[in-house]
Write a protein that binds this DNA or RNA. Structure first.
Length: 214
DNA sequence: GACCAGGCACATC
DNA sequence: GATGTGCATGGT
């Protein structure tokens, strides 16, 4: 927690998930669109969707696939992601109210399994949706988390560790708190972006100072 | 022109 | 389980 607090003091609240309109559906859509793709390009795709009036799960389902593909093209893999997006939209319309409500650990596991059963939703996407769209207490592992874990938090093998194992390590070390999970993940991404710009990891002075106190 | 970016599905060993 | 491949765009 000490590092979390220093990062928070240094970078301030990150307020993830970054949203244009702030709706839960936009977070779900963003989670699918950002797969192996720079966030800048996700923003382009989202902007296209909004400009075309495709601003809801209903609208995504009502949009013919070829048109949807054109709109999300900047986010790459548009043939796959367009289909994933419609699958996610149908699921969202079915489960939105249920998933936003607090639930037991067992129910959270069940919801995670349901999401994982969707084509195009893997572990990271499922956890991003659960945490950032629905506010459920689950920690997201992604490329940044792995990188910063391996390079800076001295978690041996974090880069290639099984997703579940690394997630368990982070969650064991943190209070079970949605706010902490979302902010800490976002702060680690910020730290990583700050310090890992180049291959070989040229850690910058301010970042070094933060880590030295860890 | 290579390499990377907030993955995932599927095949194969 | 671990590893390899296809999917596609845009920035550095």
């Amino acid at each position: 927690m000490a590092l979390y607090e220093r990062l928070y003091a240094h970078y301030g609240p990150q307020q993830w998930w970054p949203c244009r309109h702030g709706g839960r559906w936009e977070i779900v859509a963003g989670a699918v669109l950002t797969q192996n793709c720079a966030w800048r390009n996700v923003e382009r795709a989202l902007a296209n969707l909004y400009a075309a009036g495709v601003d809801s799960a209903d609208a995504v389902l009502a949009t013919p696939l070829p048109a949807l593909q054109e709109l999300i093209r900047p986010a790459g893999f548009f043939q796959q992601k367009s289909a994933y997006l419609q699958t996610a939209a149908a699921f969202y319309l079915e489960h939105d109210n249920e998933y936003a409500a607090p639930c037991s650990t067992a129910d959270l596991r069940r919801r995670r399994r349901e999401l994982l059963a969707l084509r195009g939703v893997g572990q990271e996407t499922a956890d991003s949706i659960l945490l950032y769209a629905f506010g459920q207490p689950i920690f997201v592992i992604d490329a940044y988390t792995r990188r910063v874990g391996e390079r800076h938090l001295e978690i041996a093998g974090a880069a290639h560790m099984r997703y579940d194992d690394l997630q368990a390590q982070f969650m064991a070390a943190l209070p079970k708190d949605t706010q902490v999970y979302s902010e800490y993940h976002a702060l680690l991404v910020q730290l990583c972006k700050d310090s890992c710009r180049k291959k070989g990891c040229g850690v910058q002075c301010a970042t070094l100072e933060l880590l030295r106190k860890a």
